[in-house]
Design a binder for these strands. Sequence first.
DNA 1: AGTTTATTAAATGTCTGACATTTCTACAAC
DNA 2: GTTGTAGAAATGTCAGACATTTAATAAACT
Lengths: 239, 239
Amino acid sequence: MTLDTLPPHTGGAEHLARLLAQALLAGRWQPGDAFPRELDIARHFAVSRNQVRNALATLTSAGLLERTAGRGTLVREMGDWHLLDPLMSKWMTGLVNIDPQLVRAIYAFRYSAEPMVAGLAAQAALPEDLERLETAFAGMEKTAASTDLRGEHAEYDVAFHDATYRATHNLVWRQMGHLLRPSIMALVWGSQDRTGTLDDSLSRHRQVLEAIRNRDISAAESAAHEVLRRTAIDLGIVS
Amino acid sequence: MTLDTLPPHTGGAEHLARLLAQALLAGRWQPGDAFPRELDIARHFAVSRNQVRNALATLTSAGLLERTAGRGTLVREMGDWHLLDPLMSKWMTGLVNIDPQLVRAIYAFRYSAEPMVAGLAAQAALPEDLERLETAFAGMEKTAASTDLRGEHAEYDVAFHDATYRATHNLVWRQMGHLLRPSIMALVWGSQDRTGTLDDSLSRHRQVLEAIRNRDISAAESAAHEVLRRTAIDLGIVS
DNA sequence: AGTTTATTAAATGTCTGACATTTCTACAAC
DNA sequence: GTTGTAGAAATGTCAGACATTTAATAAACT
């Protein structure tokens, strides 16, 4: 793998980092492969070595690369990636060709965890949490009709689930919210035929909201479970 | 808060980062406070501005700081910390004065999640996973007798729980393993009277191992639950 | 022949000083 | 009062030289 097929670079070390990260996330280097040298990258994108170093430092902190003086830069395997780093979410968002293995892993996690999260939320939610949930849900309803609002709809979807994680009032669970965006965005780009499915999805979300509002723990758990089953269908994981 | 009360610096940007991170984790700056300027830090520790910048970049990537050109460096609030970043685990490990709120949050997460993790492990464990679990458990047994082996005992304890998370064979759950070390280490330094409690802890761990080996999901869940209850007692969260 | 020891090349890491950019404040002008 | 401008203060960026680590190669010595 060389740099030749990457899109051009228009400015900012941050941008360069995203560019390289997305190439890595798309699997354009194999784990264990040698990553290009600093000077080659700098020359190729016509940026200073400094920007390259900053970008590579960022990728290293996300667990994508491993650098050692004298030897060079190696690509790490997927198991070492820091999937819960918010930067990763940013990079994965809007990336069309995410490794399906990754989407499934994130989904499997949500499937096992999110019912419990909803249950915890039903225990711990405060009025402000309910407000966030309601606002997000209203947004989902409002944007459900038109197909060219589906990007906006997905944002409200993310906000709804994120509000659930936040409502646990646990610092660790709250961090997990970062995983939601890539997972839900994969949904948007992955499924074409959304006719009818949205109504179903909406009603399932409504049940989660109602259960949390009623502080009904087991109802929240099973409702979240149902939402995730719907998601699985839309992701094509089950039929 | 000034830099004056920090220990000296003996070399390496990595070391400097750990020093500053631990000061932050111990709560020596309040969220929203201004962090010292680069040049002041450089002068105080007698290092180059470069090392300071690298260290601060690391802390920023962990969510501890927020930097903006022209304004300066601000300390972020605990809710923004990237608790699941492996660097954070490193920094927290061996830190005596961790904020009790943080220890409780991590424990609460484990209490809610780990039974499910054990259940998933019972479903997905492979022979190599069982081997890891057995090795770790054997180490725990071997080091249970003497009190001056309790550091080593804690390492086997961490290894045991980490093996459980790995046995789920899910990339996301596996990341959570990083949280274990600080949580378990807090146990070591927090509890003095360990006479008799170790036997109890060991037998509960053994039941988790047996349940996973027998692929008994609900047994694994309840056994893990029991281990966590034991931990809660030792952490002083419940009596 | 095989093992150890210098030598060299190539990569990342570090230092230094100058300069660029952003942000906030204060003060002046209209 | 509002607007505009000048300046100070902080982080961000650049360029080039140099340091350090690593791996490979060649030389020297049993």
